[in-house]
Design a protein around this nucleic acid. Structure first.
Length: 783
DNA sequence: GGACAGACAATTTTT
DNA sequence: TTGTCTGTCC
């Protein structure tokens, strides 16, 4: 019997062996969080406190769920079949599939990803003749998802004005459309599952009794609805074991609510709060930097990382004149790291926004250094894949109008926009799917549409007896997609991806995870029938308990077909962005994407006011604190070596911006920093931070005078900067919003001259750019 | 139906 | 600067 507790530190040990009571584990970066979570599960099972059946462990990403599953089976020989380990969406999907009738869904319900949802919304609005200028579909999508994540149905939303009333009305119509088409969007998966449990006490009791242990990873990232769902599962005899780090909460913009940690603590009367502060990743100077930086945040649960690793190397800081020069320096340093024996994949370059990668990529290409960029299109998001999936979905669910509209004329088969509109109109009129409405469309449009209907019907019939990979292969050909991309000039890659889809289907079938291990199902009772003794009666249906062998189709008539399983898999897991995966390459990614990863050497680049912290964060609630947490995440990715860099000027959106260094430099312990370029004190140069520069005002506007400063060797103050600084003495700054009595509102884009000759270039909202003599023009600073 | 020009916006992102 | 979307023309 393996000793699971060996090599755990006292806090980890305490966390792993807690009694089954509500617990909150505050796990700092690199403190062995995942290890604790996994060991806890293994320990519970090993000690006989739990069987795999009684475990529910939830994560945010499929990657995390997979890691948990594989590390767990490496730790103990466990039958993972009965375990519920997965993402919030994956688990909710699973529960809804098992109880689709109670959830008022068709057995073949399909999942709309974000892009599908948007096209469904656009289609809805078009049908209702809504002005999409006045009500942008994207805004409606945001409105709907936001409402759902607050647990609000249309009737629950308080609409205060006509505009919002319209949104609510559209929200309602959208929900009806989804219901008719048998599709659910991402937040709907959660909300529907939440409501299923909320409105169905026996079912809720069943799952509460079953899941003795509910373990939550990255708890700080949960949104309101996810927390509500967890609370629904928490009953008398079970408990939530939550692991998270409030200092690493960086997803507020997508609804994550750090407050859930405090709420959990209070609402569940959490007595078991354990802090994991021993860090096993980074050297001392790096941790000191992280600790001191994050101490600037006001609302924290409180935590300080420590290490036994020793101070290690200082944090290196570099100031570049331009973004190009910054990239050049980074690449030189990377080359040196590689030459001293570091694997390329142990080096990461982090940036705040994706647009920053281009310059670095260029420089890496020129230097001939392999690299990998994270982010971008994922496999199941590619258009050819989505087309193929749309055909497959139509086979499975003819009511899926989103898929219908997507492929009815792709590849082109002479069905124009007008025909499609006629079908949509008829569908509305007869309250049926577009596919079913074809019979009502007359004339030539009707016949070409009928041909399409015949094609789909033929596909459905032909694939009845086929295996899943055969089905996919058949559909790719019969749909005409294969021919289309064959003849397309740039179609080879797409063709290969379609072949890859067939392989993915084969892999999916061989893993055979779909739907077979669903532990409880609601099965309607035939009139007059009574529930078998091992089944629990529940109104006019029964909850089939775990005693039933759900892998036996005879006992489990509702098992998902491989196709249905594959389609949900495709929606719930968009797959890797497979760019240059596998080979030893330098890793390029946003700071967000780096969360959870670690590297021997890390470059945090573009550390400039306006970029990092990002200027938009100034207007967001708690925006600056979130940016600081982001910086904290970035710093704590580094194991041995950390580089921080910034540039005086940067090409962004086709224009050169002049930035000053990030305030975060002032929040770091200065004795851990080693400046590779001379540190220029604040205020000693144009662009130096002046004390009265308030947050959000001290990033600098654009100028097109890039050529003057383009010498990459120059890092010292330039004459033009000095010139601008004299003008700045007048009290104005570049980027400052101003008001002019004649021209109205504007922003200062350049300053030159000094004293009585000082002039400012102002870009007015209504009157374009103008040079104004400050001594003459009455410019008012706007706050 | 497809090619092309012009407008427009451009943090962060998983499911 | 660059990618995406929309409208126009053949």
């Amino acid at each position: 019997m393996p000793d699971l507790l060996a090599n755990l530190n006292p806090e980890q040990h305490a966390a792993v062996t807690l009694p089954n009571e509500p617990a909150l584990i505050l796990a700092g970066a690199g403190s062995g969080k995942t290890r604790v979570l996994i060991t806890r599960i293994a320990w519970l099972i090993q000690q006989g406190y739990a069987s795999p059946m009684t475990i529910l462990a939830v994560t945010f990403t499929n990657k995390a769920a997979r890691e948990m599953m594989s590390r767990l089976s490496a730790l103990l020989p466990i039958d993972t079949r009965g375990m519920w380990i997965g993402t919030f969406h994956g688990l909710c999907n699973r529960m809804l599939r098992a109880h689709y009738r109670d959830a008022a869904l068709p057995s073949t319900f399909q999942i709309l990803d974000t892009a599908d949802q948007l096209s469904a919304i656009k289609r809805l609005m078009k049908g209702l003749n809504i002005d999409d200028e006045k009500y942008p579909p994207k805004n409606l999508q945001y409105f709907i998802n936001n409402a759902k994540e607050q647990g609000l149905r249309p009737k629950d939303v308080d609409a205060t004005d006509n505009f919002n009333r319209k949104f609510v009305e559209l929200y309602e119509a959208y929900d009806q459309q989804c219901q008719r088409e048998g599709v659910v969007d991402f937040p709907e998966l959660l909300l529907r599952c939440y409501e299923l449990l909320a409105h169905n006490p026996p079912l809720r009791a069943h799952y509460q009794a079953r899941f003795k242990h509910i373990l939550v990873d990255e708890f700080q990232d949960t949104n309101k609805l996810q927390y509500a769902w967890l609370k629904m599962l928490a009953g008398e005899s079970n408990a939530i074991f939550a692991v998270g780090d409030d200092d690493q909460s960086i997803y507020a913009f997508r609804g994550a609510n750090v407050g859930n940690m405090r709420d959990f603590e209070n609402e569940f009367n959490v007595r078991n709060l354990i802090k994991l502060e021993q860090n096993y990743r980074s050297h001392g100077h790096i941790l000191d930097a992280a600790n001191q930086l994050i101490a600037n945040n006001a609302r924290r649960l409180g935590k300080n990382l420590r290490t036994d690793a020793g101070h290690g190397e200082p944090v290196r800081v570099y100031e570049a004149a331009t973004d190009t020069q910054e990239a050049g320096w980074i690449v030189e340093e990377i080359r040196a790291l590689i030459n001293t024996g570091h694997a390329r994949s142990e080096v990461a370059v982090l940036y705040r926004s994706n647009a920053q990668s281009r310059t670095i990529e260029h420089t890496l290409v020129n230097a001939g250094i392999p690299y990998r960029v994270y982010g971008g299109l994922r496999f199941f998001e590619r258009q050819e894949i989505k087309h193929a999936l749309a055909y497959l979905r139509l086979i499975d669910n003819p009511n899926d109008d989103t898929s219908f509209a997507r492929v009815v004329n792709f590849p082109t088969r002479g069905i124009g926009a007008r025909s499609i509109e006629q079908a949509a109109d008829a569908a509305r009129q007869y309250n049926c799917s577009m596919a079913a409405a074809i019979v009502y469309v007359a004339g030539k449009a009707g016949s070409s549409l009928s041909a399409f209907a015949t094609l789909i019907a033929k596909m459905r019939a032909e694939t009845q007896q086929m295996s899943l990979p055969e089905t996919v292969e058949y559909v790719v050909r019969a749909s005409g997609l294969a021919d289309f991309y064959q003849n397309e000039r740039e179609g080879q890659d797409r063709l290969e991806n379609l072949q890859e889809l067939v392989n993915a289907a084969a892999a999916f079938v061989s893993e055979a995870g779909y739907g077979l291990d669903t532990p409880a199902r609601s099965i309607p009772l035939r009139p007059g029938a009574t529930a078998p003794p091992e089944l629990e009666a529940q109104g006019d249906s029964v909850v089939v308990l775990d005693a039933v062998d759900v892998t036996d189709p005879a006992q489990n008539p509702d098992t998902m077909t491989p196709l249905a399983g594959f389609l949900s898999h495709a929606s719930l897991e968009a797959g890797d962005n497979q760019a240059q995966a596998g080979q030893d390459a330098v890793q390029l990614m946003t700071v967000h994407a780096a969360k959870g990863l670690e590297f021997t050497a890390v470059f945090i680049t573009g550390l400039e006011e306006g970029l990092f912290p990002h200027e938009n964060s100034a207007i967001e609630a708690d925006g600056l604190e979130e940016e600081r947490r982001l910086m904290y995440v970035a710093i704590t990715r580094a194991k041995e070596r950390l580089y921080l860099s910034f540039a005086q000027s940067r090409m962004l959106h086709g224009q050169t911006r002049y930035n000053i260094r990030s305030r975060f430099f002032d929040e770091l312990p200065q004795d851990t920093l080693k400046w590779l370029t001379p540190k220029v004190e604040a205020g000693s140069r144009w662009g130096g931070r002046s004390d009265n520069a308030g947050y959000g005002r001290d990033w600098f506007g654009r100028s097109d005078r890039q050529s003057e400063y383009s010498d990459p060797a120059v890092t010292a103050p330039l004459p033009a900067f000095a010139n601008a600084q004299r003008a700045a003495e007048s009290g104005f700054r570049i980027g400052q919003p101003v008001f002019h009595t004649k021209f109205g509102e504007g922003t200062i884009t350049a300053l030159e001259g000094g004293g009585p000759d000082a002039r400012a270039q102002v870009k007015f909202k209504r009157h374009g750019e103008k040079w104004l003599a400050l001594a003459v023009a009455k410019l008012q600073a706007v706050e």
